[in-house]
Write a protein that binds this DNA or RNA. Structure first.
Lengths: 345, 345
DNA sequence: TTGAAAGCGCTAACAC
DNA sequence: GTGTTAGCGCTTTCAA
């Protein structure tokens, strides 16, 4: 039988109120009493029941990391896991307790975001994987009661923040890298049309091309839903139809799609980077092992998680109110891009 | 202000007891009343507060997946994440709610396993990443109160089960593959000495060598703690000292260590598989991208998670009591092993 | 500095 | 079928 606060109180010869105060770090308690209480607690292997605590207290120390679309994650991607590590890493260091919950479109709980938080008694939430199409997204924008930080999605509103890299700049940089290497006809392998990151990355490419006196038109974009398989199929179809006649480079909005594209290129008998240059986005570990190594933009999701948790904590403790944290990104120039100005491959 | 059961009751013109019954699927309730209640609930965006429910009910529907050593996971590995997906996948399908919690040696909470479950009001636990050295492991072995399923660690006891592949057989198979390819002098790159999987895999290799009239001795094993970096350094040291004089193959107890070994081999100017054959264990995605592709034993962690959750659910609902679920593994023969009986590389 | 007591929102046993 | 009520284990006034 696991003891309750009553057992500790009895054993220490005090009332339950005093035990509670001891466990909540109140100062107005005689050191000796406190000592006796902790000894008793130790002996009984006692620690406060969280449900009871949540029920009676307004002062919560637990946060939730909600992963939207968990099941849709490609096992080759480690983004979400690294994010978890980052969040956990911060939470631990500050005595916060974090629980990871998941949702996915198939089993999407018909529950509002606010309800979820209230029901689970969480003091704050980090949200990842949400897209602007998610049912509860609009609700999120309005919610002002529960502190919330979103990863990679703009979340305006009081008590709401978001953290991301500067997707526009990152995307522009990688497009400029391609342009610098002589590529003028770039095919963009894009993710979900309405995903926030996608829109931003598109903007970056657009800007880069504009600067080079080019225009990004509809027929230079292949929408592939951030899926390796779809990218593979789409690029295969594209190659069957166009061969090398139209574009010299594929700029992909995720490494996973770049993997699919690379695979398609090879299977169609073309070479990377001789026939097509390919770039990715995210910097997942696999990009260090492909042949050739994939040029990409790396963002450290562990850092995102850490920064997100930290920011959330600041909102919770009223040291911050809202805002956007921009994390650095790194352009990783590797073998999958060829300079076509220097002559044939 | 988020409504409570009282608001719904008032709105539906019934008592809170009736609302509670409606929400817990009791049959003895007039359909019409039920309908009215759900309408009111819908209107008020109501759903039961979990803390309160946990506090008052014995009948819990939430399980926890505890990941031990979260922070120590190499980002190249996706094992844990895939495991989460599997657990979640089953839980969703059965209306169970799952929360993922983490612990790690650095911030290891000084709380017993049982307390954790009681405090969080979880009905059952899936445990992963624990080693036999973990503080609470021995306690786990004795706990009979809370249903628990461990991944990859033997967990005897009532209400306790474990799921894993047949590590002995898998390990024996991969050793035999090496032997079949003419390798007689095999260096084992081992993980943590006392990790359960490690002991089993060692047993498998031992058996295979025995059958080939060989003996696995201490100086044929390099302990590398399941770390890529340690494997890299150890193998580098080994090569500096021995070159190709002693062994022709490295049998690694994890892909991550195989990656480190492979890297060391290449950096020392040797080739895989010409100078050294290398095998891994786990079947992480990266093994499909290395040069050469890594021969390994794959286990589907998503399936492990699913099976673990299913088994736990059976224990919780008393359809099962304890036991061991053995999942299939697949030997993936790829380019990192060379047949040295066929002549020099 | 401490004790007593009123809830927090819910479930479940017992009445009707 | 449905209402009433006693807790679940804790926090938090309010008194003392």
């Amino acid at each position: 039988m696991s003891g309750s606060i009553r057992d500790v109180a009895r054993r220490a010869g005090v009332s339950i109120g005093t035990v509670s105060r001891a466990f909540n770090g109140y100062k107005d308690i005689k050191p000796e009493t406190k000592k006796r209480i902790f000894e008793a607690a130790e002996l009984l292997d006692y620690s406060p029941n969280l449900s009871a605590r949540n029920l009676s207290s307004k002062n919560k120390r637990n946060i939730a990391l909600i992963i939207s679309g968990l099941l849709e994650n490609n096992p080759k991607e480690n983004l979400m896991f690294t994010l978890i590590q980052g969040v956990y890493s911060y939470a631990c260091s500050r005595g916060l307790e974090v629980a990871v919950y998941a949702t996915d479109s198939a089993h999407q709980r018909q529950m509002s975001y606010k309800r979820f938080c209230v029901d689970h008694s969480v003091a704050g939430v980090i949200l990842s994987g949400v897209t602007m199409e998610d049912a509860y997204f609009s609700e999120l924008m309005e919610t002002t009661e529960i502190p919330c930080v979103a990863i990679d999605v703009e979340l305006p509103g009081k008590k709401a923040g978001w953290v991301s890299i500067d997707n526009v700049a990152a995307s522009q940089e990688i497009a400029e890298l391609l342009i610098k290497n002589g590529h003028r006809n770039i095919l963009v392998i894009s993710g979900k049309k309405n995903a926030a990151v996608n829109v931003e990355r598109l903007t970056g490419v657009y800007a880069a091309l504009e600067n080079a006196g080019r225009r990004l038109t509809r027929d230079n974009v292949l929408y592939c839903d951030f899926s390796e398989e779809i990218a593979y199929n789409q690029v295969k179809g594209y190659l069957k139809e166009n061969g090398t006649s139209k574009h010299t480079a594929f700029l992909c909005f995720s490494d996973i799609m770049a993997l699919g594209a690379m695979n398609a290129v090879k299977e169609c008998g073309y070479r990377v980077p001789e026939d097509f240059s390919i770039t990715g986005f995210d910097g997942i570990p696999i990009t260090e092992y492909t042949t050739p190594l994939l040029t990409t933009v790396a963002q450290d999701m562990k850092e995102s998680g850490f920064a997100g948790a930290k920011f959330l904590h600041e909102i919770m403790t009223k040291k911050a109110e809202m805002g956007h944290i921009i994390l650095p990104h790194r352009l990783l120039e590797r073998g999958s891009v060829r300079n076509i100005a220097e002559g044939p491959g």
